[in-house]
Structures are given as C-alpha cells and as structure tokens.
Amino acid sequence: MNYAQLLFPDFSLILLGYLLCRFTPLNRSVWQGAEALVYYLLFPVLLFHSIVKSPLDWAATSSLIAAGVSAGLAGIALAYSLPWWPGLRGKVQIRDHASCAQIAFRFNSFIGLALADRLAGAQGLFFISVLIGFCVPLFNIAAVWPMAREGQQSFAGQLVRNPLIVATALGLAANLLGFRLPEWLEPPVSRIGAASIALGLMSAGAGMQFGLLAQAKRLSAAVLAIRHLIQPLLALAAIHVFGLQAQQALILLLFSALPTASTCYVLAARMGYNGPYVAGLVTLSTFLGVLSLPYALALVPAP
C-alpha cells in the first residue's frame, strides 16, 4: 500500500493553507474566523455523525475497546511525564508541553477510516469506528487537562465548553440509545464533515511556523517518538494482554500509528496556547505517518 499517496491530500491542504496565508490577502485575520468555524461547528458535527452512524456491538468489541483504551492511557501517561525524562528535565517550557502533549496520543480519524476500509473492508471500518467512538472523548479530555491546569482555567468548565468533547459524548450516548440520523439529514451532515476536514487542515497550515520547532527540539522529538515509535509497541503489548486476533489486532496496530489529529492545532489556538508550534508538529506527524504505518503493520502477530 502506498502510504505517501494516501497521506498526500493532507499534505497538500496543509501546504495550501500555509501558502495562502503567507502570500495572498487571505492572511491571519481570515484564518482566525475559519478556525472558530471549524472548532465550534464543523468538527463537532463530523465527530457526532461518525460515532452515531455505526451501532456498537459490545460482545464483539469489548476486548478491542479495552486494548485500545489501555494502550491510549499508557501513551497519555508517557506524554504527561515528558518534563521528567532524562535530557528534558528542567529544559521544557511548561506551556509548550501543555499544548503539545496531545500530539503524542491523539490521532487523525479520517486517515484511519480510509486505511481501515482498504485493509479490512466493512469489518475494519466497524472496528476502527468503535475505537474512535471510545478514544476521542478520552483523548480530548486528556488534551484539555494540562492546558486548563497550566492556564489556571477551570478543568470542568473547559470540558463542558469544549465542543469536541460535548459532540463525542453526545454521539456515544445517542449510539447507545439507538439513535440514527434521518436519511434526509445524511447528505448535508456529510458535506459539513468534508468541509471540516479541508478547513481544519488548511487552518493548521495557515498557522504553521516551523522556526518555533527549533526552539523546543527535544520536546518536539519526544512527543513525535511517542506518537510514531512507542504507541505501536504499546498496542502490540495490549494485543497480547487482551488476546486480540486477526483483524482486531490489525486495526489496533493501524490505529496506534496514525498521524496526530489536525484538531490539535485548533484546540491549542482556541485555548490561548502556541498554535503555530503545534501546527508544525501536526505537519511533521503527518509526514512521519508514511514511516510509522508500515512499521506498525509489520508488528501484526502471525495467525
């Protein structure tokens, strides 16, 4: 499978946003409004729709959910512990760490859905949708907490005001209650989702400043190492602990090596943190996905 070709649409949209912001009248004042639209409307609609459209089957997916959540929690713990790692102790700006820790454990669900469909068809889509439904709210909460704490903001207040968390929580509740969108609503909701992907990636490109990465090289390397090197190993351990077989093991390893979420940039910027720094990490993570995806899939246990 050509991962570079699969990831090219994300690269191109990030690059387009960067070029438009730097070399056209569509400058930062334009993109600030676009970021707000993505954060408060487009992405929440997409997340809600992606969760409610696939019914959850607890009996078939309980081990997969447990493995995915366990590997994710281990990744979150590693990301939180970075300021105490050898070589980073005393050399990490706390606000930079608060904003970029999310890079280490969040994921690009759109790329994941596309890959799962190619690798395992309808069953693969079902398995990764289950992981997305349970991990998105957990990982978003974990992303908000260090920024709320460092910014001396109310954590509970940030959660209830965070549209991404509210949308995923409502989506899970609606799914468990058996709610489905009426057919006449599917086309406009799907188009809103497509718009959110494009605008979110272009906004990340518009806010990108690679020069800021050089100011925190060790921290940047550490969060990307967790995302692309360590997370697949955590997933492999979870596969053995929970006894996952065949396609569930394949999908969990795929899930573990995805590039980070493009909404990392939007969340950091909307909470008053260094958005351009996070945007640069999002771009690097997307590039690294070309390497980490085949690496992770090579770890799939033999049947």
Rank of each mutant, 00 (worst) to 15 (best):
N2V: 04
L6V: 02
P9W: 06
L13H: 04
C21N: 15
F23S: 15
P25Q: 11
P25E: 08
R28H: 09
W31G: 10
A34C: 15
A36L: 15
A36Q: 15
Y40E: 04
I51D: 02
V52F: 00
P55I: 12
L56M: 12
A59Y: 06
T61A: 10
S63W: 12
L64P: 11
A66T: 14
A71I: 08
A71Y: 11
A71F: 09
S81A: 15
P83H: 10
G90F: 03
D96I: 04
Q102K: 08
F105K: 10
F105T: 03
N108D: 04
S109M: 13
A116C: 12
A120C: 12
Q123G: 09
L125D: 07
S129M: 06
V144A: 04
F155T: 13
Q158L: 08
R161N: 06
L164A: 01
I165L: 12
V166L: 14
G178E: 15
L185S: 05
L185V: 01
G200H: 10
S203M: 10
G211V: 02
A214E: 03
A214N: 05
K217R: 14
A235I: 02
I239G: 00
Q247R: 10
L252N: 05
F255W: 07
F255G: 01
F255N: 02
V266T: 12
L267P: 07
L267S: 05
A268T: 10
A269I: 07
A269P: 04
R270P: 06
Y277A: 00
V282I: 06
L288C: 00
G289S: 12
V290P: 00
P294C: 00
Y295L: 10
A296S: 05
L297H: 02
